[in-house]
């Protein structure tokens, strides 16, 4: 079959690929299938271990299914009212923080992606420099303190609001969009903000989704900011709470007894597993939703006209 014919068939609607391609595709599917099992197993292991009977799980080995069944360790982590306070704080921090971060990154990335803008290299350099050098914990703490942010919710969001890394990823994506888009819109009299919000950002959804993911995960997992900038338990974040649970079970002060049942076995390994589950599952629920934004490729040409 000649390639021209091939294209013609495609053009007429039928999806036909060469034999080599079909085989290649099947190999890829199988390969990725195996890979995904390797990737998924440890998390599965964590889940199964976390609901196993503490004493039975101690023998170790592989966990395709739970060994025995007990939710005691979940109780240890979830029965305390404080976890809901910390969940609330972390969710708020993640939602507000991520929205602010993505917005600020987009505002910064867009001008830097416009080639004719004078000084964009110097500004890029100025921002990039902060990726390599930092003042360290104490000067940053002093800054936050002087801004009056200690023990405020804003302290959980502002100090890490923009990551140069994420900003550059977005800028690079915008750079890969055809410059004609911006130019022709400008010629038509559109203002820069209009171009950004109406044309560039809609076209950048895959990259926005990617950096939103990065920001979201780092907001969700961040630890040092909450530790240093807040004192009140009412501002405690999930990671701080979980850290306390973790250290508690591995110390001689472990909480061991439960009402009416005094000899339930708790291993710190199991509590670790519960902690992973409790902190990761919300992210896993959110991730497929973000994935929506990288559906199949965009046809830029269509937007141009």
């Amino acid at each position: 079959m000649t390639t021209k014919e091939n294209v013609k068939r495609r053009g007429s609607g039928g999806i036909r690929r060469t034999r080599g391609e079909r085989i290649g595709n099947r190999i890829i599917v199988v390969l990725l299938g195996m890979l995904s099992i390797v990737m998924i197993y440890p998390f599965w292991h964590v889940l199964m271990y976390s609901i196993s009977d503490g004493a039975k799980a101690l023998g170790g080995g592989l966990f395709f299914w739970p060994k025995g069944f007990s939710l005691f360790s979940y109780g240890l982590v979830l029965r305390n009212a404080q976890i809901w306070v910390s969940y609330k704080n972390t969710i708020l921090k993640t939602l507000i923080g991520t929205a602010l971060s993505v917005l600020l990154s987009a505002l910064t990335a867009y001008p830097l992606s416009i080639r004719r803008l004078k000084g964009r290299r110097i500004i890029s350099m100025y921002i990039f420099f902060t990726m390599l050098f930092s003042g360290g914990t104490i000067p940053t703490y002093l800054l936050v303190k002087n801004l009056g942010l200690i023990d405020t919710f804003a302290a959980l969001i502002l100090p890490g609001a923009v990551s140069a890394y994420n900003m550059f990823i977005l800028r690079n994506y915008m750079l890969s969009l055809p410059p004609e888009l911006e130019e022709s819109a400008r010629i038509d009299g559109a203002r820069a903000t209009t171009i950004l919000f109406r044309i560039i950002l809609p076209l950048s959804t895959p990259s926005l989704a990617a950096i939103a993911m990065f920001y979201g995960v780092s907001n969700w997992n961040s630890y040092m900011d909450a530790l240093l900038y807040t004192n009140k338990l009412s501002l405690q974040t999930l990671q701080l709470y979980l850290r306390q649970v973790l250290l508690q079970t591995s110390s001689s002060n472990a909480a061991m007894t439960v009402a009416g049942k005094t000899e339930e076995y708790v291993s710190d390994t199991q509590v670790q597993m519960v902690i992973v589950a409790v902190s990761v599952i919300p992210i896993l629920i959110a991730y497929p939703w973000l994935q929506r934004f990288y559906t199949k490729g965009i046809t830029v040409g269509a937007v141009k006209g």
């Binding site: 240890l76 029965r79 305390n80 110390s251 002060n253 909480a255 061991m256 007894t257 439960v258 009402a259």
Partner: peptide, 21 residues
């Protein structure tokens, strides 16, 4: 006593907590 036989409840209420155990 009562619900405080449960370690988690006991500690949430401040038992054990301020003494480093």
């Amino acid at each position: 006593i009562g619900e405080y036989a449960d370690d988690v409840t006991h500690r949430a209420a401040g038992g054990y907590v301020y003494s480093a155990g």
